[in-house]
Amino acid sequence: MVSPVSDELKLRLKQIIIEECDKDELTPDDIANDEPLLTGDLDLDSLDVLQICMAVKKEYGVRIEGNTAARRALKDIDALAQTIADATAE
């Protein structure tokens, strides 16, 4: 079953990405929920992925481990929020 995802969660994730990846020039409004995080304009790399995963673990207690899981979870904001919602609903 797919857990419900709040807009607040998505907003917070955008703030985390801006902060952890030092993307000071962006605001949460600049990141669309379905914008690709790794291959699109944001151009996040493996170090950004590690930063985001560690911040998510710290804030939500959700572990995203391994390359494949990280790539899937960090497809876009929608996918990341869903990953967290599913894990915390368990």
């Binding site: 952890e20 030092d22 170090l47 590690l50 930063q51 560690m54 710290k58």
Partner: peptide
């Protein structure tokens, strides 16, 4: 008692 942030360590 936390792991260092990857970026800080790098």
């Amino acid at each position: 008692n936390e792991l260092p942030k990857p970026l800080h360590f790098v």
